[in-house]
């Protein structure tokens, strides 16, 4: 897992040990360290700001209450993500009027429709947009994915959990995670290609 978003000098295991021993400051430091990532993940899965706020709160309250259950077999962050995913999925299910359990949606494995747009991108297309514009483009792309794909993509490619951790968090098999991830990546590639492709370089135009 990438440590790019973790502050330098941050010692997760030491903080968790102190928090478990009853040090409130240590736990709030863990909150400060991870709250924005938990919040982002909750927003992406639920696609709803208000739900994400609840998920954020519930996640850390539960983590605090159940801190003694955390055995240190995984990273604390992975454990936190598992709590957050469960909370987010509960919200998602509650909001869905058709009562379909999102993670059990039948997965269409037809491959022919996966790749339509084949065009090279501009060099560094993301630099053409402001940070906010880019965030908007990416959010819309993620939002367009079905929950079953979206959840896997968010955990694996945004929160950078391993395939195994993602499977464990979502209670899915490794092969289900892999096939959903491929699907999600290809669908996002398709959307972003429409946005970022080199001008005048339409599908197959480079051949």
């Amino acid at each position: 897992m990438s440590t790019s978003t973790v502050s330098p000098g941050f010692d997760e295991a030491a903080l968790v040990a102190r928090a478990k021993a009853g040090d409130a400051d240590a736990f709030s430091e863990l909150v400060t360290q991870y709250d924005r990532r938990v919040f982002r993940m909750a927003k992406q899965i639920t696609q709803n700001e208000e739900d994400a706020e609840d998920v954020l709160q519930e996640t850390f309250l539960k983590a605090y209450s159940h801190l003694d259950d955390f055995q240190g077999n995984s990273r604390f962050y992975t454990w936190l993500v598992r709590i957050a995913v469960n909370e987010a999925l509960m919200k998602l299910r509650k909001r869905r009027s058709d009562k379909t359990v999102p993670l059990d949606e039948p997965i269409d494995t037809g491959e022919d429709e996966m790749v339509r747009e084949v065009a090279v991108w501009d060099e560094n297309p993301e630099q053409k947009y402001s940070r906010d514009e880019l965030a908007e483009i990416l959010d819309q792309a993620v939002q367009s994915l079905k929950p079953a794909y979206r959840t896997v993509f968010v955990l694996r490619d945004i929160e950078e959990l391993s395939i195994e951790e993602t499977a464990e968090a979502l209670n899915l098999s490794i092969s289900a995670v892999k096939s959903r991830l491929l699907r999600a990546r290809l669908q996002l590639r398709e959307k972003l290609t429409r946005q970022f492709k080199r001008k005048g370089d339409d599908a197959f135009g480079y051949l």
Binding site: S2, T5, D35, R36, R37, F39, R40, E53, L56, V115, V118, A119, V120, W121, P125, E126, L134, A135, L138, D157, I158, E160, R185, L186, L188, R189, L192, T193, F196, Y206
Partner: peptide
């Protein structure tokens, strides 16, 4: 092209830093 643009798709997502939690929410 497929491989290159998929790789870039992942890169652009991974490059996004999470925004701060709104102060009132925190």
């Amino acid at each position: 092209v497929l491989c290159n643009t998929t790789e870039k798709t992942l890169k652009v997502f991974k490059g996004m830093e999470p925004q701060k939690v709104p102060p009132a929410v925190e």
